[in-house]
């Protein structure tokens, strides 16, 4: 039991009672999917947080590199026309 090399990290996503999307809740360690699911239930739904659980091996997640932050995200910073609020609506159009 002390040999923990079989224990891998899993990311847990929970869909809450009123939510329609699964949100990242945290991570845990488990030796397979079944144990990950059980542990997720115990660790992250104890206070009635959810109605559905996803568990994903952390190693399967491809994450963006923090050093790429400026390359990836800065260019969209000055493109306000990508937001619908940039456009003026004709007065005739009500209840938009």
């Amino acid at each position: 039991m002390t040999d923990k090399k079989d224990y891998q990290l899993w990311e847990v996503f929970i869909r809450s009672n009123r939510g329609i999307d699964h949100k990242h809740a945290g991570s845990l360690r488990a030796s397979d999917a079944e144990m990950a699911m059980q542990n997720a239930r115990d660790l992250y739904t104890r206070r009635m947080e959810g109605v559905s659980i996803w568990v994903v091996p952390s190693s399967q997640i491809v994450a963006s590199d923090p050093d790429d932050k400026s390359v990836l995200f800065d260019p969209s910073g000055d493109k306000i026309y990508r937001h619908p609020t940039f456009y003026k609506l004709p007065k005739e159009l009500e209840h938009m």
Binding site: Y7, L28, R29, A30, Q38, N39, D42, L43, R46
Partner: peptide
Amino acid sequence: ELEEDIALTN
């Protein structure tokens, strides 16, 4: 395990 700690006390 931390996870099991919570499970047993749950």
